Simulated assay, not measured.
Amino acid sequence: MDTDFDSDAAARAHVAEQAARVGAAVAAGQFRREIAVETKGEQTDVVTQADRDAQSRVIDCIHSAYEANAIVGEEADELKSVPEEGPTWVIDPIDGTSNFVREFQVWCTAVAAVRDGDPVASAIVAPELGDVYVADDETATRNGEPISVSARTDPEGCSVVPTMWWGRDRRDEYAAACREVVERFGDLRRVGSAQVTLAMLAAGTIDGVVTNVYANPWDTVAGVHLIRLAGGTVTDVHGDPWRHDSHGLVASNGEIHDELLAAVGEVEAVARD
């Protein structure tokens, strides 16, 4: 049993991958089968027994190696914010549950190892896509091969994702985000899983991600770590380095970051009106 605070990032990345694989396997076993769906708030904020079962297995896997470490998780009674001190794991058993219940293949299990509030390793497993993303403190990979963000420099050739979820009372900001993307960049994508979106940015599939909404740590930390290790840039809406408690999230290949910040600035202007 390893509870050493100073364990290296490679060991934590290995456990993150194991835990994400286990959770994804549990969820995949219930995908496209009869399953009860509950709502936690708005009609799009859903949860299933698959979420709970997968989270339980993820936690078991982590605690078999790091028994004393805290867990931040979306479901059940786990912590809901990241402690500023000590080793912590941030997990999302099914990121993209709305996709999951609609039988749409874009969803994943995400696990991140955090130390003193900063990620040191992460894994994202998207079983229906056949993709496993892993990052330690040196390299980000997809299916065992190193990945990097895109090298595109012309915004008109870039695809950008307005991510997270703007509530029903913030749809004017959602509309503004979509407008800014389609007017400033080549195309808009929206796939319904924040962590898969961030992983795709790390792999160069898309070029930018933007939101002015506070993003929960289980929706972001694992993917943000991948992007950083893949050479990308992640900030808040003001251009300051992103943290788990930041206002908004702006991520890019670095080349189009200023244009993304200008876009989110316009969204913020709508929010203030």
Rank of each mutant, 00 (worst) to 15 (best):
Arg21Trp: 01
Val101Gln: 07
Ala262Phe: 10
His63Ile: 01
Cys108Val: 15
Arg179Met: 08
Ala9Phe: 03
Thr39Glu: 08
Val47Ala: 08
Asn253Ser: 13
Ala269Ile: 12
Ala215Trp: 03
Asp4Lys: 10
Gly223Gln: 03
Asn253Asp: 10
Glu38Ala: 15
Ala13Cys: 02
Val250His: 02
Ser252Ala: 07
Gly231Ala: 04
Gly204Tyr: 13
Ile256Pro: 14
Asp2Ile: 13
Asp45Gln: 14
Arg228Pro: 07
Ile35Tyr: 10
Pro87Glu: 11
Gln30Met: 11
Val111Trp: 03
Pro83Thr: 07
Ala151Gly: 15
Thr153Asp: 04
Ala271Cys: 12
Arg228Lys: 02
Met200Gln: 13
Val114Leu: 00
Asn99Asp: 02
Ile256Asn: 13
Ala65Tyr: 01
Glu34Ile: 01
Val37Cys: 09
Asn143Met: 04
Asp207Ser: 05
His257Ser: 14
Glu34Lys: 02
Asp53Pro: 00
Asp219Phe: 04
Pro162Lys: 09
Gly96Asn: 05
Glu42Tyr: 10
Gly223Asn: 11
Arg21His: 00
Val250Gly: 07
Phe104Asn: 14
Val161Leu: 08
Arg21Cys: 00
Glu180Leu: 07
Val160Trp: 10
Leu260Trp: 10
Ala27Ser: 13
Gly86Thr: 06
Glu173Lys: 06
Trp166Glu: 03
Ala123His: 04
Gly265Phe: 14
Arg190Gly: 10
Ala27His: 01
Glu38Pro: 00
Ser98Asn: 14
Glu128Ser: 04
Val46Ala: 02
Ala194Trp: 01
Asp219His: 08
Arg115Asp: 01
Asp131Lys: 12
Val120Met: 05
Val125Trp: 08
Asp118Lys: 08
Leu188Ile: 09
Ser56His: 01
Asp154Gly: 12
Gly167Leu: 13
Ala263Phe: 08
Asp273Ala: 13
His257Tyr: 12
Val196Arg: 06
Asp273Pro: 03
Thr39Leu: 04
Asp172Ser: 11
Gly157Lys: 09
Val237Phe: 07
Cys178Gly: 03
Ser159Trp: 13
Ile256Tyr: 14
Asp169Val: 10
Arg33Lys: 12
Asp53Ala: 08
Thr48Cys: 09
Gly96Pro: 12
Pro241Cys: 07
Ala11Gly: 07
Gly157Asp: 15
Val125Glu: 06
Ala271Phe: 06
Ala203Ser: 15
Thr44Gln: 09
Leu261Val: 15
Gly248Pro: 00
Gly157Tyr: 11
Ser7Cys: 09
Glu173Pro: 05
Ala176Arg: 11
Asn212Pro: 10
Arg170Asp: 07
Glu183Ala: 05
